[in-house]
Design a protein around this nucleic acid. Sequence first.
DNA 1: AAACCGTGTCGAAGCGCTTCGACAACCTAT
DNA 2: ATAGGTTGTCGAAGCGCTTCGACACGGTTT
Lengths: 337, 337
Amino acid sequence: MVTLAEVAQHAGVSASTVSYVLSGKRSISATTRERVEQSIRQLGYHPNAGARALASSRSNIIALMIPLRTDMYVPVMMEIAIAVATTARTHGYDVLLLTGEEGPDAVRRVSGSGLADAMILMDVQLDDERLPLLRGAGQPSVLIGLPADTTGLTCVDLDWSATGALCVEHLATFGHRDIAVIGEAPAVYERHTGFAERTLEGLRSRAKELGLRVLHRPCENGYDAMAVTLARILDERPGTTGFVVQNESAVEPLLALLRQQGRAVPEDVSVVAICPDQVAVQASVRLTSVAIPAQEMGRRAVEYLVAKLDGRGDDDIVLLAPELTVRASSGPAPAAS
Amino acid sequence: MVTLAEVAQHAGVSASTVSYVLSGKRSISATTRERVEQSIRQLGYHPNAGARALASSRSNIIALMIPLRTDMYVPVMMEIAIAVATTARTHGYDVLLLTGEEGPDAVRRVSGSGLADAMILMDVQLDDERLPLLRGAGQPSVLIGLPADTTGLTCVDLDWSATGALCVEHLATFGHRDIAVIGEAPAVYERHTGFAERTLEGLRSRAKELGLRVLHRPCENGYDAMAVTLARILDERPGTTGFVVQNESAVEPLLALLRQQGRAVPEDVSVVAICPDQVAVQASVRLTSVAIPAQEMGRRAVEYLVAKLDGRGDDDIVLLAPELTVRASSGPAPAAS
DNA sequence: AAACCGTGTCGAAGCGCTTCGACAACCTAT
DNA sequence: ATAGGTTGTCGAAGCGCTTCGACACGGTTT
């Protein structure tokens, strides 16, 4: 393993000079810099991460805590994770992957050991037990998600409440009066995941203003669960003509079932999905949808974190405005029969 | 930040004693150990990762390189990543997330800087450019996937060749003679991803032995691409009654299209999927499938790596035997018309 | 009673880097 | 010519830990 000292010797300068060439924290003459850089290349030198972390108390690592559960939005989580990793690299950081499993202990462990300089938390619950550890001056952190109390926190999230409202507005514009919301699995609501509850709340309050009726049903993944859920909905509200789907893996089953029952999309019923664009365009009917900007969220989270670590940037709540794209799954409500 | 020295002082022992309590590398009397452990708890001590890495030249970090592309098997990748992270923790390791983007440079960087003690590589191509760096005594590593030349490497993978063979055998048993294989996106084949090519090769050679005809078509994700692909297949081989699908996101579109064309599954055509069990049971027809044991692969990879790091364990190729589960999507071929 | 051994503890060195203060060399302003 | 300021480089301290050799102590063995 090549060390700083060896590079210094090879270049005929002192170790500190090499260090300054690397960090740029003091001015170095062009000729010296040149010489040092050449030695670095020739010897294939890579600074030792541990030594660097010890001396500078900076690990250049960002911890990313992803949910262990895979009962929702797997591709979204994946996309966020990849965006985080990619963006972090452009700022000179690496990413440590933590699962939600360890919970608050992971936060303690990582911040206590200086393993990471900062953390990004996903799958934040409204009243998340990890939050007290992050508030105030502890570990610099950014949440992807929005807890109930955001004091002292930085959050990046889609504006789910506005997303819900947007979906229902779109359906209202087309004259739909009876709306069914097909949600995530019950477990997602039970653990008070912010995005699910907020979407519903935004949707309901806008629906009320617009005088629409809303029926919400959580739905497990899979075709069979969707079949049962749909049957119940149509039983309870036979006049339902608008569907809002917030559950990626329910989309295709829903479309198949509607087709099977002779309900044409979008002639008889309209469907608005809340999902990544990729899913919307690959479905059997190109879906009118509100996009989940996973990459954007991951990227922003890292950028806020890097700003904090550089001493710029403040606590802040960033809610991305939802965008609805009209595709082939929504249209005017059929004339009342 | 609490340091070792502070713990030592608090417990009235020397720093080295505390270190030995922590590592268990020398015997410590029960009373001393007790006292030290209590001080650790009281002070909330966490060893500093950088210092530890520097002194011991061990970071206790495993790097996991995941593909940047998301054109295939996203849930599988995710599941593997989570299994790796979880298993690593049970052995006292953390996981560093690298994207394939940096390619061989990432390998050099990580091993050169001592950031990680070992690496796990996913999405290995048959002739992967990262391999030369891993061969021999360099960085301890495990591949999830099987390159063309495995000398000096440790690999964990599903036996894809046997998987292909198994699919075709199952269809043969039911009397199907004309088999269509719906594969991953063309890009996956173009970059010579081992699993795709091996599956095909295993399937073809077994088909030949059994006297079956095979038509293979790569397929982009999404409904429209599947529609085009299916039309071409049925045009070229109208007598096709057996389908093998190795592309998660093509499964549901295929079923929908078959239904739409009045071809009943499994009465008229049989479908065998290669996908995680979860996908198979959630599809609109419960799918006969060969499972992709994602968790198992992630877990095994970590365990092999840990064994290597502990000085146990050798280079080895582990091919997991495929298991086919018969569900509702396959049955006897219809009598020839 | 001497020589010996195992057990438990300590002190000190050192891992490879960053960073601070010192200072030589040169340049500009007096 | 001299004081004052820059600029570029160096030496040394120290980050918090691991680990090696040393050694004190009590228990065996001769």
